[in-house]
């Protein structure tokens, strides 16, 4: 019995060390990026590479915000991503309410249609959407960046899963209390579904912040670029200025990492809820 216990603790130690090595691999590049972003240009091309600069310079960050349009890009991203997040939470929770608590003909069929949309790769609708948005004159507008993402099948699916765990008696009690559906939605369902709404919001924020292809093709002027698109155009302009590019990456990734680290519990629970709903 004792031998078995020691064996288990040795195995655990080995696994712990292996996991640490893994964590070094997943997080190391972030540290390296941060280190590089403060290096003076000359130091980048030394061999062997130095991990920490002997003479750290914040100049790249100053350049990003003063001479390059990074501040504007961050503003754009915040406007676009916050709008999308709010719209998705509203639109998806309303639809999920209908699918969870209303009785009407064609409910299951419509839900299946929404689910099937999850299987359509976004690149399939990319070209028609681009042509349409271009014809609407929405190139280089917030509308063009926001509206195509204001609805998400995944969001409906995620919220419906959660809504279905709300006891139907609560809905009935609210009906007896004199609530019409919009009041039940507003005063009973939404307050009770806060964890799921939070998970969807964080998920939408992170994935939209990182969204690239759509803003790439629907923005032409630097004033309307989102952070990620601005970062990719830095790459075109300063292809070998690695410290600047690394500083840009830090700026692009930072807000999302903060949101994620603050809300990782509900983010992950949202993701996994989506997967177990698949049963």
């Amino acid at each position: 019995m004792i031998r078995r216990k020691t064996k288990k603790s040795i195995v655990d130690w080995v696994l712990f060390v292996l996991l640490l090595v893994g964590a070094l691999a997943t997080c190391g590049p972030f540290a390296w990026t941060l280190a590089t972003s403060f290096k003076p240009d000359a130091e980048v091309f030394t061999y062997p590479p130095q991990l920490i600069s002997s003479n750290p310079q914040p100049g790249n960050y100053v350049d990003l915000f003063l001479t390059l349009p990074m501040a504007r890009a961050i503003f754009n991203s915040l406007v676009v991503v916050t709008s999308i997040t709010i719209l998705q939470v509203i639109v998806c929770s309303m639809a999920a309410y209908a699918f969870s608590f209303l009785r009407f003909r064609g409910r299951e069929a419509l839900f299946v249609v929404f689910l099937m949309a999850l299987m359509v790769p976004p690149q399939v609708t990319l070209i028609p959407n681009f042509i349409m948005v271009r014809n609407f004159g929405w190139i280089d507008t917030y509308r063009g960046l926001i509206l195509p993402f204001a609805f998400s099948s995944f969001g409906v699916f995620l919220l419906r899963q959660y809504f279905l765990t709300i006891a139907s008696e609560l809905i009935e009690a609210a009906k007896l209390d004199g609530c019409k559906h919009w009041k039940i939605y507003l005063f009973v369902v939404l307050p009770l579904a806060r964890p799921a709404l939070g998970a969807l919001a964080i998920f939408a924020f992170v994935s939209q912040w990182n969204n690239f292809l759509w803003p790439l093709i629907t923005t032409t002027s630097p004033e309307m670029q989102t952070v990620v698109v601005a970062l990719s155009s830095l790459r075109g302009q300063f292809s070998t200025d690695w410290p600047l590019l690394m500083a840009g990456s830090i700026v692009a990734v930072g807000p999302v990492l903060i949101v994620f680290i603050l809300g990782n519990r509900s983010f992950i629970s949202g993701l996994t809820a989506g997967s177990f709903g698949g049963r």
Partner: peptide, 11 residues
């Protein structure tokens, strides 16, 4: 109505 599960609003 008084429900079997009471159906009190948890929030």
């Amino acid at each position: 109505m008084v429900f079997q599960t009471y159906a009190l609003y948890p929030h």
